[in-house]
Design a protein around this nucleic acid. Sequence first.
RNA 1: GGCCCCGUGGUCAAGCGGUUAAGACACCGCCCUUUCACGGCGGAGUCAUGGGUUCGAUUCCCGUCGGGGUCACCA
Length: 552
Amino acid sequence: MDYKDLANLIFPDAKEISYYEEKYPERNLPEGAIVTRFAPSPTGFVHIGGLYQALVARTVAKKTGGVFFLRVEDTDQKREVENGITGIVNSLKDFDMAPDEGMISETEEIGNYGPYKQSLRKDIYQAYAKYLLEQGKAYPCFCTPEELEETRKKQEIAKLRTGYYGVWAKCRNLSVEEMAEKIKNGENYVIRFKSPGREDRKIKHKDIIKGNVDFPENDLDIIIIKADGLPTYHFAHAVDDHLMRTTHVIRSDEWLSSVPLHLQLFQELGFKAPKYAHISPIMKNDNGGKRKLSKRKDPEAAVDYYKKEGIPAEAVKEYLLNIANSSFENWRKANPDKEIEEFDFQLNKMSVSGALFDMIKLLDIGKTVISKMTAEEVYEKSLDWAKQYDEELAEMLKAKEYALKVFGIERGNKKPRKDISKWADVKQNIEYMYDDKFYGKTQDYPYQVISEKENISKILKLYIEKYYDEKDDKQTWFDKIKALSVEMGYAVEVKEFKANPGKYKAHVGDVSTVLRVALTSRTNTPDMYEIMKVLGKDRVVKRLEKQIEANS
RNA sequence: GGCCCCGUGGUCAAGCGGUUAAGACACCGCCCUUUCACGGCGGAGUCAUGGGUUCGAUUCCCGUCGGGGUCACCA
């Protein structure tokens, strides 16, 4: 009995690895093309950190004419969640980041390097495990969880490194006959990798992001195939990224310390190792301390949160890209209208330490992103959002022509307004342009400097009777407000008012405020001239008259 | 605890032996022929700490402290 016989005993039906090597040949891509993947587990919603990794991975692949694929790592069936894959696929779609290859629904996939769902690749892993077994580079281990726990305790008491290595690796030195015997007796077992490493030797790793990192070699005989026949992450990573011809593994930096193991696995399997880029996680401030954004505690950790809040996907991507490469910001300033894809993203420029998540900055980017949209785009997107999350708004937006006019106010100028940072802001921003909302609310009107009732109604009355003409152009319209100010005895210029503070009680801006408040019930709105145009004469007069009445 | 990573203003960060230590968000002030917003100008605010090395350290080395990761039949 030798290793070969043992391998046959364990995996009698596994194919030769040459079969898979031929089935998944090197990719025929242009020089320098980078192949990356996003490889989440279907264990719940997509985390913002996951989206971040996916964005980075996709960006470098796109930039180099490579491939970005989605592989689902569902080797832990206990943690699996219903419709987990759908959630992942949809989240990527929401951010316009659909993969070139991989899963596209719960059961379907595209691409020639699949299956892209690990639970469907059992045969492949077993073929490679068999390959290692044949060479004596792997062995079955019969230790029970209880035994493992016991050795761990012993190690702890003796203040030794915990784990399955050296003298603690009991099954490592079983004879082939003993192993075969136990298997035939029906004992449960897993397959372990027989590590050739030594803890007292160093291994050098050059990470694209972290730079040079030296570790002790791995000497742990880690499990590669679990009792259920499925591989562990480490083994699946080596086999899959080799067969799928991944060139760059971009993943969260919690994997950094597994690099010695992974490199060893690639080596012993006879694979060429990919390049690694370990991304620092996105953090959050927690009572003065930093911690990773947590799925349980932080709603903003879930990518769906941004969708619900109506923060444009584009803004989230820009924000993330900004964390990834801070030069993005300057590039964006210089190229306000270019597509994100045109930015020359540099993997090696990514920060080595984790960034604190900054919602305020994100919302600021949201404002800029939305300010650049046309009225039509704003309309479509806020309607899409409203249909899902705000019925009332959806109802308001039914009258498309009118909504377009409202969204068109001060839009498209060289200096567009930036007052909407997310779709959830839209309603309160346009509410007063809708009569049922405007009249439906009882509220104290925030008149400011000019607050005496008689003056207010006098201004409004005068304006309607003497000055207001719907056909005026903007200059005439404003000249009339000035004339009204003069007639009321207020300063016609703010400058003049400031120069002679004792001389006037108020100025033209205060008169405008009275009109604005009467017309919209608020003190800050976009350009009043445009608002009045959109409202139209009848509605303007009606609103003003109502205030005259209220102030008489 | 072992191993590994990190530490520039409130936040994201450029800089990598000699700089008035960029820029962005936030904050404050001023300006911009109506408010708000935008925009412009200006302001406050930073190299964790102690030792080296050096003519000179934010930049290099070591220690300390602080933060993070990892040590599963989870990924």
